[in-house]
Structure formats: C-alpha cells, structure tokens
C-alpha cells in the first residue's frame, strides 16, 4: 500500500512506549502493533485524533503517501 505509517518514528521522537500510548489512546497493544507494522487496512478519525493529541503532532507526521511508481518510470514520464 502506498500509505506508510510512521508511528514508530514519532513514538521514538516523543520517547513514548507502545503500552503507554495504547493506554492513552484507548486501544489494545495488539491493535497498535498492527498499526505500527502497516498491516492495518484503515484508521478511524477518532483513533487518529487521539494519536495526534497524545503525540502532539499532525496526521501528516504519522501517515505519508509514497507512490508505488519507481523513480525510473517517473523520470521517463517527465521526459515525454
């Protein structure tokens, strides 16, 4: 999936543990792990809001879009 979850990066920056974050946002540690490893299919706005509140960040800090098209393909398109 082209959406990358950078939750672990933000957690490291804020020096917060998984257990602590899970407790504060009100989800299980197992679900937080699914989110961190990128296995999640979707994220609720309520969960995203809670994460942003606890980590004091923006949704864009946690979710990043990366195109699946390789750089070579991208440059060839630009040349055309």
């Amino acid at each position: 999936m082209p959406i990358i979850v950078n939750l672990d990066v933000m957690m490291a920056r804020r020096k917060i543990r998984s257990k602590e974050l899970a407790e504060q946002i009100g989800i299980t540690e197992a679900n937080l792990s699914i989110l961190k490893t990128g296995k999640a299919k979707a994220i609720r706005f309520t969960t995203l809001t809670a994460i942003c509140e606890v980590l004091n960040c923006q949704p864009g800090d946690i979710l990043v879009y990366e195109s699946e098209v390789s750089e070579e393909e991208l440059t060839s398109h630009q040349d055309l």
Partner: peptide
C-alpha cells in the same frame, strides 16, 4: 469482516 478487524 477482515477489513473491519484491521480498522484501528
């Protein structure tokens, strides 16, 4: 259901 289960 699988999608629902993986919606956090």
């Amino acid at each position: 259901k699988q999608e629902q289960d993986l919606t956090i």
